[in-house]
Design a protein around this nucleic acid. Structure first.
Length: 939
RNA sequence: GCCUUGGUGGCGGAAUUGGUAGACGCGCUGGAUUCAAAAUCCAGUUCUUUCGGGAGUGUGGGUUCGAUUCCCACCCAAGGUACCA
């Protein structure tokens, strides 16, 4: 075999790796550990396209590189296999999601295997596997059994809280809990019934039941996320959506807000991603202020970041949903308020937030009393105030906040000016600078920084408020009205949630006949006839048996998608363990993920929830680490190049792109496989694609071809622009695919896929092959390499190592190309150069590297051969010429060595003097020569 | 609006702390090889030019002997986020 037969080579080595367990990672090793992880995929029915493996290729290169560097590398893969598409498919076809999921996983695995990843498949996990979700359920139980102690700043066992209540009541306990907890002493606690005690404890648990307002779609029988709603109707199906309160499980992530923020400083993540988590958590410092309502036994709490502007308050605004609205509205205003609330309730939260321009609101007729001046302040409601943030009420300071200003202008409310020497006739003044306050009683003359502590102290003294830190982060709703998710290990006794015994895990999903909600609006699990818990036999039994003594109904909701993905990285460490999430030994050895690769779209979902759970499990002594991912890299999306055929409006006439001109046409997606690299459409194939185009008229260019227009879009089946990696592997080989994906551009940047360029990378691999082969077959010599060849090799080692460490995989592909071109030109065929070269390339193109390694006479996989050592000595002789231009006219050259030796420095100094002679009497004052840096002239 | 990232040939993209802009690849042009094609190899390829040069990294300024790189203002694009008080 003297040709590069990539298919043969790749099959051979993939089989070899599988048979020999080449990438099996051991939990015990003398070597240092390194954990490289990809965000595991959701196995969709559409299969992988060329965009999916981008991050996997990058992490695989890094994992292989780390093996060469002597690390014991953990590089596992699995499937996030619970999810909505499988359930939707099940609803349509009646096919059990488990089956669909299995078929999809099988296809994913085949596609992944073809690309030659160095995954340790013996550690595979699937979130929908009962042996896996047993641990997801177990973590839920730990959260249920925990409360957050704000004094110790960690989660503790609920039994310790019960002990505290029994000994001293709850007055001294500082816990993250519901706002409406009443205080009690030890005696009162002991006097409570067991059920009353459970009710109270539920308000302290880290996962708890709460009434949450949700977007409810009756037709779909499910709650929708804001972005699943488009123009007030569901994205899927276009059904109406209403806002509804539902009792759902929530996760008390807010207890961890500050620690989630602080932890960011300890991890190596891209700054934009850290920023978005910081903004999501949204810490703001300020004060809470209480305003009494005139003539009512009621008060309104507001949070403000600018308590110093309190004398600028001229009205208050409540969210339309605020609890007090009904109580305080006067009879004269009742109709207007009711009309307004009716109107806003029809707008989704998203609509209200998106509409910045229109100002709306209505006066309640009620007044609040200013805590210092006692002045009467009108109370308005307005939908620019959101019920879900802060207290759902604001003190409006029109002169210091633009939204308040606009509201005041619109309704012709008073705009008192409290800033010394600032003109507020056109807009509000929101700067926190040294501008002194005016018309502000005891704050007069003080700038922001001095007024803040003073006003907070005054508020506290008066009992009208206190300094406060507010977070935007809200507790995470954890219930889903769906079938294909983890069941909760929870049953209900007298309406109170109880955990099933943990020894009975996993609580497996029951079969149901249909995957839709029940007629009475219960989640799909309501259809299971076997779905109740027998507390005596500790078994799941038939619903029919519920007798309220020993048999109780189980929770019908399932967990959200992020449940299974929050701690999977620890399960890989010890996936078969039936006694624990992972053994302490395995967790102590692997610690956490050293490098995590995935998309930035998970910034405020998965990546935040995962950090939350890890910190929680750390508190409870389950995990030895308090962050899941040390370093994170976001790979950019690979975009597809869609092809469009233009159809004349209302007619079955298709016009070539060059002939469209001013005609009214509609662009139609054409499958990209009908189009060649010159944008010419295969008309026959297009006609046969869809019956409606079979008899269409085609208006071609003057040369008879039909051209499509191109546009870069997200790669998706529905846009017919998907490129399948299997086809690329078939035609060019996996090594070409791997290198080309890296060569496309910087890993973190979004970039369009264009198969046309792949031949460059492919011919590089052919050239590489030919370095080791001549017409008669494999051939390398044992002669001494030339100086140039050494230089080429060591230059390459240096660059490739630097590039991999910096995740600049695109430039190292170029470096390889240059190296191979140079070695070809040098006619280099010596073993001493070619052996290390193949090791360098092996992370990128592992199949060809293994094959060449074997042909070089080695046994065993190349994957653990040490990475070649860089020797600077081989580069010293290189020289570089630097022209110095002066006044754009004079030009001379300096020839300098890159060597830092004495000679080189002397040479540089000589050059410096030469330069000075040239520059003498002209503008520059000083010329500095820095060895290695060559020349630096300072004016 | 705000935050983040980016804007370099026909295209994807290089350029270390400010030091020969356009590496490498695609495409294109010419040549070699071939009956021919494929494959391969060699040369050229930022624009402009009166062949001396001149211009040039989104736009306009600034700092510097020297700016793709640093500073200021603006324009555009992508992603994120949002009446966050």
């Amino acid at each position: 075999m003297s040709n590069y037969s990539f298919n043969e080579i790749e099959d051979k080595w993939q089989a070899y790796w599988a048979k020999n367990g080449t990438f099996h990672a051991d939990n015990h090793s003398e070597k240092p550990k390194y954990y490289v992880l990809d965000m595991f995929p959701y196995p969709s029915g559409a299969g992988l396209h060329v965009g999916h493996p981008l991050g996997y290729i990058a992490s695989d290169i890094y994992a292989r590189y780390k093996r060469h560097k002597g690390f014991n590398v953990l590089h596992p893969q699995g499937y996030d296999s619970f999810g909505l598409p499988a359930e939707q498919y099940a609803i349509q076809t009646g096919q059990h999601p488990r089956k669909t999921t299995e078929v999809n996983i099988k296809r994913y695995r085949e596609q992944l295997d073809k690309i030659g990843f160095s995954f340790d498949w013996s550690r595979e996990v699937r979130t929908s596997d009962p042996q896996y979700y047993k641990w997801t359920q177990w973590i839920f139980m730990q959260l249920f059994d925990s409360w957050y102690d704000k004094t110790q700043n960690k989660a503790r066992a609920i039994s310790e809280l019960v002990a505290l209540f029994a000994s001293e009541g709850n007055q001294k306990v500082s816990a993250a809990c519901d706002d409406d907890v009443k205080s009690f002493d030890a005696t009162t606690w002991k006097g409570f019934s067991s059920e009353e005690q459970q009710q109270i404890l539920l308000k302290y648990r880290l996962t708890y039941l709460a009434e949450t307002e949700v977007n409810w779609c009756p037709q779909l029988g499910t709650v929708l996320a804001n972005d699943e709603i488009v123009n007030g109707v569901s994205e899927r199906g276009g059904y109406p959506v209403v806002r509804k309160k539902m009792k759902q499980w929530s996760m008390r992530i807010t207890a961890y807000a500050q620690r989630l923020l602080d932890g960011l400083a300890t991890i190596d993540w891209p700054q934009p991603l850290k920023d978005s988590q910081t903004n999501w958590i949204g810490r703001s410092e300020g004060a809470s202020v209480t305003f009494l309502v005139d003539g009512h036994d009621a008060s309104i709490d507001v949070f403000t970041t600018r308590p110093d502007t309190i004398f600028g308050v001229s009205f208050m605004t409540l969210a339309p949903e605020h609890d007090l609205v009904a109580q305080i509205t006067t009879d004269e205003q009742r109709d207007a308020v009711a009309t307004y609330i009716e109107a806003t309730s029809k707008r989704s939260e998203r609509e209200r937030m998106a509409d910045v321009k229109s100002i709306s609101g209505v006066f309640t007729g009620a007044y609040a009393l200013h805590p210092f001046s006692g002045k009467k302040i009108p109370i308005w409601i307005g939908d620019y105030v959101l019920a879900g943030y802060g207290t759902g009420a604001v003190m409006a300071v029109p002169c210091g906040d633009q939204r308040d200003y606009d509201f005041a202008k619109h309704f012709e409310l008073e705009i008192p000016n409290i800033f010394e020497g600032i003109d507020i006739s056109e807009e509000a003044y929101a700067e926190k600078d040294a501008t002194p306050l005016a018309n502000s009683d005891f704050l007069n003359g003080l700038p922001y920084a001095e007024a803040m502590p003073k006003v907070i102290e005054a508020l506290e003294r008066k009992g009208a408020g206190e300094g406060k830190i507010n977070y935007r982060l809200r507790d995470a709703v954890f219930s889903r009205q769906r079938y294909w998710g983890e069941p909760f290990p929870v049953y209900y006794k007298n309406g109170l949630p109880q955990l099933i015994d943990w020894e009975c895990l996993p609580l497996t999903l029951p079969d149901v006949e249909k995957y839709l909600p029940t007629e009475t609006g219960e989640p799909p699990l309501g259809r299971a006839d076997v779905w109740a818990w027998n507390t005596e036999t500790q078994e799941v039994v038939s619903n029919e048996l519920v007798d309220e003594k020993t048999v109780f109904p189980l929770e019908l909701n399932t967990m959200p998608g992020w449940a299974g993905s929050s701690c999977y990285m620890f399960r890989y460490m010890d996936p078969g363990n039936d006694e624990a999430l992972a053994s302490p030994v395995a967790m102590d050895y692997w610690e956490n993920v050293d490098l995590y690769v995935g998309g930035s779209e998970h910034a405020t979902g998965h990546l935040l929830y995962s950090r939350f759970w890890v910190k929680f499990l750390y508190d409870r002594g389950v995990l030895p680490v308090n962050e899941p991912f040390k370093k994170l890299i976001n790979q950019g999306m690979i975009l597809g190049e869609s092809a469009f055929v233009h159809r004349v409006e209302g007619e079955n006439i298709l016009v070539s792109a060059g002939k469209v001109n001013d005609q009214k046409t509609q662009p139609i997606h054409s499958d990209v496989s009908f189009v060649n690299n010159s944008n010419e459409l295969d008309i026959q194939a297009f006609r046969q694609w869809r019956p409606e185009y079979e008899n269409a008229e085609f208006i071609t260019e003057s040369d008879g071809t039909f051209k499509v227009s191109r546009e870069v879009e997200k790669m998706s089946k529905s846009k017919f622009n998907v490129v399948n990696p299997d086809d690329i592997c078939e035609q060019y080989g996996a090594d070409t695919l791997r290198m080309y994906e890296m060569f496309l551009g910087p890993l973190e940047q979004a970039k369009p896929w264009n198969t046309a360029g792949i031949t460059g990378v492919h011919s590089f691999l052919k050239k590489l092959w030919r370095l080791y082969h001549d017409d008669s077959g494999f051939r390398v010599s044992d002669e001494n390499p030339s100086k140039e060849s050494y230089k080429t090799l060591h230059k390459t080692i240096k660059k490739v190592e630097e590039d991999i460490e910096a995740f600049s995989f695109n430039t190292s592909v170029s470096t390889f190309m240059i190296a191979v071109n140079e070695l070809t030109a040098q006619k280099c065929d010596t073993r001493e150069i070619l052996e290390p070269l193949v090791v360098l390339i092996s992370p990128y193109a592992p199949h060809i590297a293994e094959e060449l390694w074997e042909r070089l006479g080695h046994t065993g996989s190349i994957s653990t051969v040490p990475f070649p050592e860089f020797n600077e000595g081989y580069l010293i002789e290189s020289t570089k010429e630097y022209p110095i231009s002066f006044n754009g006219k004079m030009r001379f050259k300096l020839e300098l060595s890159l060597d830092l030796s004495k000679d080189a420095v002397e040479e540089a100094v000589l050059a410096h003097e030469k330069t000075q002679q040239y520059l003498e009497g002209r503008t520059p004052k000083k010329v500095i020569v820095v060895p290695g840096k060559i020349v630096n002239i300072v004016g």
